[in-house]
Design a protein around this nucleic acid. Structure first.
Lengths: 172, 172
DNA sequence: CGCATTCACTTAACATGTTAAGTATCTCGC
DNA sequence: GCGAGATACTTAACATGTTAAGTGAATGCG
């Protein structure tokens, strides 16, 4: 949609296409961005009703599956940068949705876990969330969805080790 | 690393898997997020060298293809929300990369266009950007890339009209 | 014409993304 | 054991995402 270029009614010369590049709207980053937005648009309202943002929900979900994790590993799991996670954890802790206690062995580490309240909140959100996911799967097709996920994973892997900058991965 | 369980020293029962949900890291939103990040990680350093953020680059690219646009349409094209765009345009204008002038017919509208300097900057960034895109295409495979884009587009379309909240689209 | 509504932005306020510094611990070599 | 360096976070600072409110300019209707 919206493939204008029909040169509506502005009495101007063709265009200022000085710099030749691929059609911007068809670039891979834009495709991924739009697709993700289309998906998240479905979930946000429900999360919002429960006073959760997308990232907060990611954190709770990551925590629900385990007993406790260090902040750094949680950041990897929830795909958040340290500073963002740090702030969000502060808020979630203030809301009593998570708990924190410094590890005894290493005072630098703090172990994060979900609280009873956090679990209760999750339980109230999960059904809707699952229903939405099911509807998305139904609309797009379970088979195609799996195929898409495979391709996305492959894309990730094919770009691993092409780190644009520092590349501090080493033995991982 | 990845010392997962091993149950260090905390005297707690096994795990807190109270709320049953799909494996979080395999959800569609996470797959899309990670894939996009893997791609953008390639571009960011180059853009950064030229003093541009991803969004600023999106705006310049959108502008390079046309003579001038209203802010609202530019927002659609660059896939940015009004407020973000508003701020970024203010900055880009201060850097003389774009130009703005209010439309004569409708004083509310302001037409945005890329400046000579903006075009010059684009010309200096485009080659590297294209090279990176080519490398990504090479690694992932041109055929698969096209296939992936198709699927992403399909996903978008299959979720259109399922707007999570207001749904104020009407005749578009 | 008068004025309520709608429009096209812009501001404001708060949450997150992102990079750079800062702080407290821990580890290790000497 | 002690001081340099590495670690695990946290803070800070700035840019963007996101929603709500504000502002000025068109529109429409009585």
């Amino acid at each position: 949609m919206t493939k204008k270029s029909a040169d509506p009614a502005n009495g101007h010369p063709p265009a200022a296409r000085q710099v030749p590049m691929r059609d911007f709207s068809r670039s891979l980053p834009m495709s991924l961005l739009r697709a993700r937005e289309a998906v998240m648009r479905q979930f946000r309202p429900s999360l919002r009703e429960h006073g959760l943002t997308e990232q907060q929900w990611r954190i709770l979900r990551a925590l629900a599956a385990i007993e406790a994790v260090e902040v750094t590993e949680l950041a990897r799991t929830a795909f958040l940068l340290g500073p963002s996670l740090s702030r969000i954890l502060r808020d979630l802790e203030a809301r009593n949705l998570i708990e924190r206690k410094t590890a005894k062995a290493d005072q630098r580490r703090s172990m994060v876990s979900i609280s009873k309240e956090g679990l209760k909140l999750m339980a109230s959100v999960a059904p809707t969330s699952e229903a939405i996911y099911a509807e998305i799967t139904r609309r797009f097709g379970a088979r195609k969805l799996a195929e898409l996920q495979d391709m996305l994973g492959e894309l990730e892997r094919s770009l691993a080790g092409l780190g644009g900058a520092d590349e501090t991965i080493a033995g991982e």
